[in-house]
Amino acid sequence: MKHVKQDLAKSTGRAHLIMHPQDNVTTLLDDLCDLTALIGGGSVSPGISFGHKAALEAISQGSSIIKYNVTIGHATQNIKAGEHVHVHNCR
């Protein structure tokens, strides 16, 4: 794994980590739940807790949720870009 240092001075969004370039979810790594932008670009729903996932793009019902470049589950409903991805919409 290669870690890329965050530029904290330019922190205009939420810190997050995409485990693999082919993933369609990212993992939030701060508590700034009110922010609606991700560091580096992209929108994120407010209120997603540290350690939880947000969709990087729209994911339609039945499609794969991809993290670590593997299917970790499937969308049980349509998911918008930036939306919280967890047990309520991923199995």
């Binding site: 794994m1 870690h3 980590l17 485990m19 693999h20 560091i39």
Partner: peptide, 8 residues
Amino acid sequence: MSTIAAES
């Protein structure tokens, strides 16, 4: 965006 490159 921060990424982790998977090593193979």
